[in-house]
Amino acid sequence: MIRTEGLTKRFRSVSAVSGLDLDVRAHDIYGFLGANGSGKTTTVRMLLGLVLATSGSIEVLGHQMPKAASTVLPRVGALVEGPAFYGHLSGQANLAIFDASGPAGSRRTRSARIHEMLDTVGLSEIGRRPVKAYSLGMRQRLGLAAALVRAPELLILDEPTNGLDPQGIHEIRQLLLELNRLGTTIFLSSHLLAEVEQLCTRVGVIDRGRLVVQDSLANLQAPTGRTMLSTPEVATAMAILNGRVVSSDGPRLIVQGADPAELNALLVGHGVRVDELGPERRSLEQVVLELTAARSDHTERP
């Protein structure tokens, strides 16, 4: 659905994105992770033809961007760096204006589609009020409605839950999962690890303009070959496991060996009680921190 090769953008001498090779497949919920200023938004803008790449190629829905923007973009819904509207007009009027501005927005079905979308994002009751009276969360919902109004095949969302309360975040997450289940591919750019972890199937991590990893979430969180153990009798356990303990943190021990059952038998055999036992999995946070930290060791010049 999205494929970039050697995508590079320099603003004068500053390199914002360099050599990016993205691969987003159909039906993915792709999490594009990166810290603030890592080049996420510049990348999103290049995918949508707003910012023109210095070099490299972009393919969206099988066509070259930005050359084929007029055929690609009608099939894409997007939220770029926060929603934007005409404040003096109502939410409904705003959606109608954007829908009428471009292709693929049938006038006949417009008001029905808009009502349905406002309903879906939970704005049906306030769709008539001017947008300047909306809260940040309501604007965010309206922005999402605007992206969805023409049932796009690909959704490109930049920080979609920004400004939403926990309830709103949950609703939007359910909505995105439902859309994905119905066949929409979702490209989600975010700096929120938890959001990506809960929603995405594939993850790309960008750090200072370079893609440091791109893999399925399951692979990134694969067992590490070590076992996580929690016991009230730390000292005894450490004595028994003599040398196999990699690290300890209070009652928690990380032990070499990927077989929790073997470890359990060993400890219980020695009369050590075990609270918790299981293969160690790294959280996405650990993966990302390790990858970006490794890079800062290698790339930072004195």
Binding site: A69, L73, V80, A84, G87, S101
Partner: peptide, 13 residues
């Protein structure tokens, strides 16, 4: 107002 980017990705040439 930020609406320019949304007009251009609508897309409007």
């Amino acid at each position: 107002s930020g609406t320019l980017r949304y007009l251009l990705i609508r897309p409007i040439g």
